[in-house]
Design a protein around this nucleic acid. Structure first.
Lengths: 223, 223
DNA sequence: TTCATAGTTCGATGATAACCGAAGCATTCA
DNA sequence: TGAATGCTTCGGTTATCATCGAACTATGAA
């Protein structure tokens, strides 16, 4: 059973350490999980047999990575439900500072900057949040058109909402999802403000010097 | 830890029984899981404490249901990964015939009819599938415009693919997801061919008499 | 070769938790 | 009332499995 594999705390810690998308060696993972190499070895072979991990031998090292983006999605979903139920994990979120700062969550911006963006947009009255639902204000529409050349009208989708609050893995607060969240992220990359990290499987988003400046001008906390 | 809750076989069986969206009593769930009522009671309180289930008292019965559509989504995702890794579950898919026949998977059609539709569309060369990816052919575009008044051009989305193969929970074969899958499902409801079941939380899709006939005319296996 | 490092396998131990029988509440019906 | 049903709580038993020490294999370096 897959869920049972993820259920063990030691294994869960290993999987979380791999959520960065990077591959880690068996001993690194043992340290992450706080267990001896023997125990780690046993866990890793189980996870591999379960299809959650794949292995790459290199010299005397064995690198493990999540076998599939779907697995990462599953883990993030699991975290989401856990957080909502008040079951905060002991180790909350990624340690990699780059990943905490800005990363992709499905197709929109997450991490420190993602949370900051939603906060700022609410403060500027571009968005209005009531409980779960978020709606775009008239000022918000104008802002998007003027500052980012995004026309809100083109973002309607039969099922997917325009705006949605998505619980941030590292920050434990909401960031902006929905078609608008996705559209803004694509705009940032088009404008060359930001780019997804090139290492395959990585979810890190790197902002350029000027990109971060422009972003801060729009969504900086000193508003 | 949430995953550990789902990891236990007895609890997993209960959760799967609740995937229909209907609420079941504690003793019904005990039978589903093949355990005594005492044990079931213990499991159920754990699941409730974990936020996966919610309870409704009614007379001397206690009805349990999945607390959230997200939970159902999580379970379906878990099943998907398990199936891909060759870890077929003992109890595969729903027993409810209506649910096997046609249901909602996120926002598109799943179940017997969903699988049948994708098969037929490939047979008619409306879609071409190579491994994971599915693409719409020229004939496919014409077909959608002529028969369902769907313009493929309007369905482009920055991140979400037009067509995507989604592993069917009950059938263990692919059905059509992506923006096209979603658009077709909305069209079916608009045309009053089908409607989601009215009981809250249910994922069953009911086809009308004429709806099923029209559907079969387009995607029937006798082609 | 020899030594060191990375990782695995084996065996024993210990803790967790699933399980059920028995008894106890609570609700409904007669 | 009392009896029946649905469900929970309690206690004790049992099995599973995570854990680690020790010994073993494999790769790389001296």
């Amino acid at each position: 059973m897959i869920a049972a594999l993820v259920g063990d705390p030691a294994r869960a810690n290993m999987l979380m350490a791999l959520m960065t998308g990077r591959a880690l060696t068996a001993s690194e993972l043992a340290v992450e999980a706080g267990i001896t190499p023997q125990t780690a070895s046993s866990h890793l072979s189980k996870l591999e047999a379960g299809g959650l991990l794949e292995q790459e031998k290199q010299g005397r090292h064995r690198y493990y990575r999540l076998s599939d983006p779907d697995v990462a999605g599953l883990l993030e979903g699991l975290e989401g439900v856990a957080a909502r139920a008040g079951h905060m994990r002991v180790r909350t979120g990624p340690k990699d500072p780059a990943l905490r700062h800005a990363r992709i969550c499905y197709d929109h911006l997450a991490g420190d900057l993602g949370v900051q963006m939603l906060d700022s947009m609410k403060k500027q009255r571009l968005l209005r949040q009531s409980k779960q639902a978020i709606e775009l204000t008239v000022e918000g529409k104008r802002f998007l058109a003027d500052s980012l050349q995004i026309s809100a009208e083109t973002l309607t989708h039969p099922r997917r909402p325009l705006c949605k609050a998505c619980l941030d893995w590292s920050e434990r607060r909401h960031h902006l999802a929905g078609t608008l969240g996705a559209a803004m992220m694509t705009r940032f990359t088009e404008l060359k403000w930001a780019a997804r990290d090139t290492t395959p499987g990585s979810r890190v988003v790197n902002f350029s010097r000027t990109g971060e400046k422009r972003f801060a001008a729009l969504f900086g906390d000193a508003e």
